[in-house]
Design a protein around this nucleic acid. Structure first.
Lengths: 187, 187, 187, 187
DNA sequence: GATGAATGAGGGTTCATTCAT
DNA sequence: TATGAATGAACCCTCATTCAT
């Protein structure tokens, strides 16, 4: 892997800072100034690395997506059976450091911008598309295609719904409870 | 029923206008000026009837909540059995004039503000609380309490997730499909 | 004396209410809505009786001026000697229900508008003019004209300065102390 | 002395511009836009350097206070006797470039806000406190303490009253006349 | 006479963005 | 690369004033 350039490092830091601010303040309350302050940098630097606030948000969402993907991929790598693969996908979506109220809030807040930003919509489609194909790879061996697709949608929407729930009501769910509620769909 | 005063009428009009703007523009893009224009009124009048933008949003969310509640109540009134009641709650949450992309977007957008507004949070809690008790009244006759509660959470979160999905991806779901996906949880 | 018309009564009430608001809030913080609320009336009524906010302030200042004048006149009526007349003028300017922090604040606040309003300036000139002639009527028997005029200015300015002081620093002066400080100029 | 940073320079310029607008328009008529225009800058820059309009006014008053203080200090440095010190304080308060109608108006206008702003009140107390101690340092050698204190208050209030007078009635007093009226208190 | 609905101008403030250093 | 000065648009909100009832 190539060494990270200074630029890459800065960008990563700023994305991380932005995500932390999003957790606290939501999209509405996130300003470039707060992001800069969170990163311990000056105000101008943010737009030096990201062409605009919109681009920053896009990259934050893209990065968050990659983090989520890597978690699922790591679990999938261990999976042996179709059942394992389903469990991997589901548990990967409820890792404790992702499935907590501030992160869910940040995520929810970004989602609310999706209908207003083609780029965010693109990322969102990728997320749902990957979720769908991951689930289908586990469900196809177990169910006829049409039932598998319905089940995949059910699981996917339930996962989203549980994230939404935690974003709206902190402490209303633990990762374990969430996993259990989704796993029960597979009986 | 008491006659509506001018105030009540105006307030209702402005709430409706605000909700239409929210559908198009989300919370981020909704300004008092756009709301006023949508209502065919001047900017000042909005704050003549609502103390602040925040209060307007609160009342919009409260009203939207009441609309949803009334739909469910109307269906519940026809229900005879526990099964009927469950179907009533579920179908009431997917009425075609509510379960469509713009409305889901508006709703999602308001939800994203919940963690930043105690008042919105209060309304949100009421919604989830009512959903929970409605579901429990149908589930308790059918299941042991702990299973009923889990099932209620599952249904509730799935409904939320389907709304979220439609908000993010217009045309990805019809009301009938959504109802079917939730009803399948009851087999 | 003619009976007061309803109009006269309303106007008096509104002037009084406005003066109370001015005491609390100063010119900067005084709005027609607060004046109406203070008078227990509706917002529109204020401009029904006064053509504009400026006119209301003018009439308030004019009325306050008349109150002050009457106090001095009442004391002058009792005066027998030139010395008495001077004391009457001075003590009349420090009546306890006029010489207190809120009233001084209101007065100061109106004075700050004098350079921006020809009408207020007119009233202000009348006040100073009357003060001057009142003082001169007491001083002329005692001093050569030029000395009398200087002394009048000294007294007049000191009275103003003491009002200003109490407006700026509540509790810094009692009426008695103020009177004593001015009377000492006459030794 | 350290070199002035751009910040310091801009802040000074903006304070000066604000004070000029205050002279013309009073607190009531002074807007950030007018201040910016007076400084030949954009409206945004004013709040870039001062957090709010209130803070701008505070700093203007503080600066005006320092100017006045420096004038008095410069004169005090030349004083040899207690009499000299008193004269220094008095004449320092009537320097021709300070004791003129527009400046007095601006000052009066700021004073009218004192009861509504704890910070302005603080500055005002400092001004009166310094005036008091300056006067006392000249009066104590000449009078018993209680008489000295009364005299100090008399002088201080008369100075204020003469400033007020010039603010209300331009051309009514020259600096020389004002000084003479105050000095006469020392005979 | 009295109310309060309605307007619209304007104010303070925030903030993304540009630019000079 | 990095800073922060500077701009200007836009926003929320206030308020005097007008008007219809």
């Amino acid at each position: 892997m190539a060494l990270s350039s200074i630029s890459d490092i800065r960008r990563r830091e700023l994305r991380a800072a932005a995500f932390r601010v999003l957790q606290r303040e939501g999209v509405t309350g996130t300003t470039l100034e707060k992001v800069a302050a969170e990163a311990g940098a000056s105000k101008g630097i943010v737009l030096h690395y990201f062409r605009s606030k919109a681009e920053l948000f896009e990259q934050v969402m893209r990065e968050a997506n990659l983090v989520l993907r890597d978690r699922v991929v790591a679990r999938l790598a261990q999976a042996q059976s179709a059942q394992d693969r389903l469990r991997a996908v589901i548990e990967g979506n409820f890792e404790p450091d992702l499935f907590n109220a501030p992160v869910c809030h940040a995520w929810l807040s970004l989602c609310a911008e999706v209908p207003r930003s083609p780029e965010l919509a693109r990322i969102q489609r990728a997320i749902h598309g990957r979720m769908h194909s991951n689930l289908m790879s586990g469900l196809r061996p177990l169910l006829p295609t049409d039932q598998a697709m319905a089940k995949a949608m059910q699981i996917s929407a339930l996962i989203d719904g549980l994230w939404l729930r935690l974003g709206l009501a902190p402490n209303s769910l633990t990762p374990q409870q969430a996993v259990a509620l989704v796993m029960r769909l597979l009986d």
